[in-house]
């Protein structure tokens, strides 16, 4: 094999203008990417500029806002707990097992992530009120257990759960996919049943993923609006949550209160993000 000729001495010198081109590239990154950050900052700034301290004081004092905040945190927490509880086995199944219809299940689980939330609420309303012969789910639940769902608190939880469970499945699926299968295989050779592998090997390693799934699901539930409005309505002191409060305040023409409530929701979202960065899969702030 012939030897390669050595490069000419000029090729070893630094190329002219490279520094300028690199600087242009980095500036372009900042300008194009920064435009979105600027938009978000402008939105936040405009809201803060618009709202008066009195508006905050007023919404905090309002009994209906207090009730809406209590109901928001209660329903969101219950929905997020149920979502993670249901999503964990489903995500583990999708991550580790090959079964007929797996692709279809995977596809179905993603539907809440892409479907307009309003449509989800409408579908829930239809599910509970469609008649199959003489039978109707809403009527059957009321007659058999005395439970009323539509336009009641359970409707809020169900609407939140339907949307956030898909999100929790996606987060947990990523978590389980990231865990090495080999540790589970070794645990099997050490005499573990499949349940023991899941309980004592998989779950302890998935702690951060579970926390992330819960927080993401909870934050999404707090901000959920469309399906709640359709399936649970927005009745003051009954099914009003913070996101529907903004809608009600807007309808009443009280823009100040609407913006103040929105900023409160924004603060909750920011706190959630910080918690995720500190303790979740997102690493450290």
């Amino acid at each position: 094999m012939s030897r390669l000729a050595p490069p000419p001495p000029s090729a070893l010198l630094p190329r002219r203008g490279r520094g300028l081109r690199d600087a242009c590239f980095v500036v372009t990154l900042f300008v194009v990417g920064g435009s979105y950050v600027l938009l978000l900052a402008a939105l936040l700034g405009a809201d803060l500029r618009y709202v008066a301290p009195d508006d905050f004081h007023r919404i905090v004092q309002q009994p209906e806002t207090q009730a809406a905040a209590r109901l928001t945190f209660l329903t969101s927490t219950v929905a997020a707990v149920i979502a993670v509880w249901v999503a964990t086995p489903l995500a583990y199944l999708l991550s580790r097992f090959r079964f007929p219809g797996r692709v279809l299940v995977d596809l179905l689980v993603d539907i809440p992530l892409v479907l307009p939330p309003l449509v989800m609420g409408l579908s829930l309303l239809i599910l509970f009120h469609v008649r199959i012969g003489e039978w109707q789910l809403e009527a059957w639940l009321q007659q058999t257990f005395g439970w009323r769902v539509t336009y009641e608190v359970p409707a809020i939880i169900l609407a939140q759960f339907t949307v956030i469970c898909g999100l929790a499945v996606r987060t947990l699926r990523t978590t389980f996919d990231m865990l090495p299968v080999r540790t589970e295989q070794v645990a099997r050779t050490l005499g573990c049943s499949r349940y023991q592998v899941f309980r004592y090997v998989v779950l302890p390693q998935a702690g951060r993923g579970l926390f992330t799934a819960f927080v993401v699901a909870w934050a999404r539930a707090v901000g959920e609006f469309g399906p709640i409005l359709v399936f649970a309505s927005a009745t003051r002191f009954r099914t009003e949550v913070l996101s529907t409060s903004v809608f009600l305040e807007l309808n009443h023409g009280d823009l100040g209160a609407a913006v103040a409530t929105s900023l409160f929701l924004l603060a909750v979202a920011l706190l959630t993000l910080v918690a995720l960065r500190l303790f979740g899969l997102g690493g450290r702030v």
Partner: peptide, 15 residues
């Protein structure tokens, strides 16, 4: 789980 095998994989796969 029933074979009673002591398996040490290449990456050790410690918990």
């Amino acid at each position: 789980a029933d074979r009673r095998i002591g398996y040490v994989p290449q990456d050790l796969a410690l918990f």
